[in-house]
Amino acid sequence: MTTTINQGQPSGAAVISDAVASDASETVTKRTARKTRRLRPSRESVGWEFMRVSGAFLIALVAFHLITNVLMGAGVRQINFAFVAGKWASPFSQIATFLLLVLTVTHGANGVRSVIQDYVRNSSVSRILLFALYALAAALLLLGGLVLFTLDPCPPAAPAYLLPDFCFS
């Protein structure tokens, strides 16, 4: 299980500068130390950091999503076109939903990426799976974003009783 090793020391830059600083003891000048610290963090370590930062934001977004849609009012069964379109008419709700979309898809896809890389040893199979994963993530972001920002809450052809109240005021 390779990930358990990854979990210990992810931030490439910090590790390298520490090792250099302690190995070369007193002969290390401040300039060298500064140089090593300026190394760019590895791609893996950026992904590792991203999982934690996006996870922290997701707590608030997911909690808000579940509270407003599943817990408040009449619960899940209240969800229908009028309810959702009515919500997305507010820019605040639209932005919160957009952030939720972007962060869940990127966090989830990045997580599945590490799962694929951990278990799929065959490199061409792994490359195909990763390509499919990225294509799926891009398609979900595109589809979700388009739906969220182009929805007409009062489509003229629809029966009135299916629409949010503000369509008639």
């Binding site: 076109f81 009028a82 898809v105 989830g108």
Partner: peptide, 21 residues
């Protein structure tokens, strides 16, 4: 993540028509 996939698709149906959603 698997549920997220289904959930984005079912929500996208809202763009087709109120009745379909």
């Amino acid at each position: 993540f698997l549920f997220l996939f289904v959930h984005i698709l079912d929500t996208a149906v809202i763009r087709i028509s109120p009745a379909a959603y």
